[in-house]
Every structure is written in structure tokens, then in C-alpha cells.
Design a protein around this nucleic acid. Structure first.
Lengths: 160, 160
DNA sequence: CGATACAGGACTAAATTGGTCCTGATTAAG
DNA sequence: CTTAATCAGGACCAATTTAGTCCTGTATCG
């Protein structure tokens, strides 16, 4: 399986939570409580998402994080790129200039590039809003249902 | 980066080599020599690809492996599926029946399913023949060029 | 009958990733 | 002005996953 990193999975859950209350700042501990993702991990996420321009931060007391844009203006591709790096199946295609010293062995770049752009396109067309669905979770304190699964909530694993 | 496993990368290189000499059986050691992939690893690859129906094996002396079909009838999607499992970004979508106990937290399945099928489609449209390009490598013993890169030859890493 | 080559699994080692913690800078409130 | 809250930015450790090796058995050709 070609895996999507767990961090990315968490990011979508956390950002969905932020999207449900626009115009409010969310502290790390709040987000951790509401999503079930451990707070140090939420903090780490935000420290990646903010420089990437997906979220904005306010420091000091009464500070916190907020989405920098509306949920329907944030694509899944952006989130993945921020956390997992450029969207490409093969590293040797990334830069454009081939650091690949074994070009003789790599006449397949054209094929990969075709695949890569198709995947990129697919991910760019899905927005955070598309992933949210109806607001159906995190209403009130965690209920018993929340402990049935593996834990927090994001999809357990990932593969392309 | 959403990574493609290195094994899959190797598989494409090794299968390309087999495709260049159809109608011949290739022993593990031959394939290892020609591609630069260590032979135990080639052996492991074949032991996965053969049950998956992508290659056929002939035991005994003068035995070896061969592609079960022409290169243009083998899609990249099949190779990935054989080695890395089903092509899907999220595990909770795989089965169809949701073992995902946290459905309240997972209203985003629809979105992922859309992404998954787009990616699957992209990978199914590229065949092994597309990846091969002109036969330009593994002519004669490894030249100096081969040692410039990281090693054997397949693209170094992978991400979606 | 013997040599060759695949079959299948167990096992070890290495790389990546996930997760934690610490120290410092910034800002609002009292 | 002082204090408390909160983000910023690393370094760091642990655990999972993946890559790679080896061993024993079985089939087939010469």
C-alpha cells in the first residue's frame, strides 16, 4: 500500500474541527480535546500547517489557531503537500533537473510523470469541505462510541 | 510524501528486463546481474509476483521466470496491488464493510473514495510497456555511470 | 541420480515515522 | 509592570514498518 502519513490523516480531522467554528481561534488543547488527537501531536501539526499558509496563529494569552481560508478553498492536495512533501510517486521526478545519476536505468520517467499529474489532479479537486460531511461529531464530551474504535478518530491507515 | 514502496520500484525494473526478452526464462541470478538489484531481493519479488499471476515460473534445472503476459497488458496498478496491497488512501475504505468503529468521526469516507478511484484509474492506464521506454540500459557489464547514483537503478524514493 | 533452480517461510537489521519534551518569544489581562 | 497563557522551534526518543538475508524443502532437467 502506498500510505498516506498518519499526520496527514490527523490534520484533516483537526482542520475539520477548526472549520466548524470559523471566526474563532482554537487553542491546541481545545483541538486536542475535541478531536482526541494528543495535544503534542496537534501542536506539531500546527507548526507545520502555519508556515505553509493553511492556518494562521495568534500568540499570547487568548491566542490560538484558525484556518486561513474557508474550508472549501483548501484542497486535500495542499494539506498533503504541506505535511508529506510534494505529490509525486518517484523522487527522481521531483526537482525537474535530474539528480538521478542512473538515467540509463530510468527511461521510465515519462510514465511516472503521467501518473503523478493524474494523482495530483485528483487530490486538488477535493476540498476540506468535501471531506467534512455533515457536522456529526465532537458534540459534547466523548461518548462511549468513541472508545470502540482504535482511538481518536481519523481513518486508521492509508495507502494509494 | 505518500511513498511507493521500494520493492514496487524494483519490480518495475526487473519486469522491464524480463519484457525485453520475451519467450525466454530468466533465472533469479540473471535478473539480479542485469538490473543490479541484489538477488535475494529479486527472489523475494518473484515469490510475490508469481502467485499474483504476473509472472510464471518453471522449476528445476533450466528453469526460471517469465512474464505471464505482454508488457503492454500489465498495468502499473496490478504491480502495485500485488506488492503493496489494495490501492486506497485510507484503510477504512478497503473492505467496504466498515470495521471503523468511529463512524461518527469518519464522515469523510465519501471524499476519500472519490480520490481513491481517481488514483486507481490513473494507475490502471499506465502499462509496463509505457514505463520501459527505449531499450537503453543493461547493455553489457555495469559502467561507471551506474555508481554515481544511489545504487542499482530504480528511482530512489516515492511519494504521491 | 545429481545438479539446478524455484517455494516458502523465519529471521535480522535498518530506515522512517510518530510522538514527547524542553526552552524561548510574544501577547493579553490584571 | 507583572503574570499567565500560548505559540515557535528545535532536539530527541521510541515504535512501527520495510528492506534485505538465509535456510530448508521440492520439483525438474540432463
Amino acid at each position: 500500500m502506498i500510505r498516506l502519513s498518519k499526520l496527514t490523516d490527523y490534520a484533516i480531522v483537526v482542520m475539520s474541527e477548526m472549520a466548524r467554528h470559523v471566526g474563532t481561534v482554537h487553542t491546541v488543547s481545545h483541538l486536542a480535546e475535541r478531536t482526541g488527537v494528543p495535544s503534542p501531536t496537534v501542536a506539531k501539526l500546527m507548526k507545520t500547517l502555519t508556515p505553509a499558509g493553511l492556518t494562521t496563529s495568534h500568540r499570547g494569552a487568548a491566542g490560538g489557531y484558525a484556518l486561513s481560508r474557508a474550508a472549501d478553498a483548501i484542497s486535500i492536495a495542499e494539506i498533503i503537500t504541506a505535511l508529506d512533501g510534494p505529490i509525486a510517486l518517484t523522487a527522481c521526478v521531483e526537482g525537474g533537473d535530474s539528480q538521478c545519476g542512473v538515467q540509463r536505468l530510468c527511461p521510465m520517467r515519462g510514465g511516472w510523470e503521467k501518473v503523478n499529474s493524474a494523482i495530483r489532479g485528483a487530490l486538488e479537486q477535493v476540498t476540506l469541505a468535501d471531506m467534512m460531511g455533515p457536522p456529526a461529531w465532537a458534540e459534547g464530551p466523548p461518548g462511549p462510541l468513541d472508545s470502540i474504535g482504535a482511538g481518536p478518530g481519523p481513518a486508521r491507515r492509508a495507502a494509494v
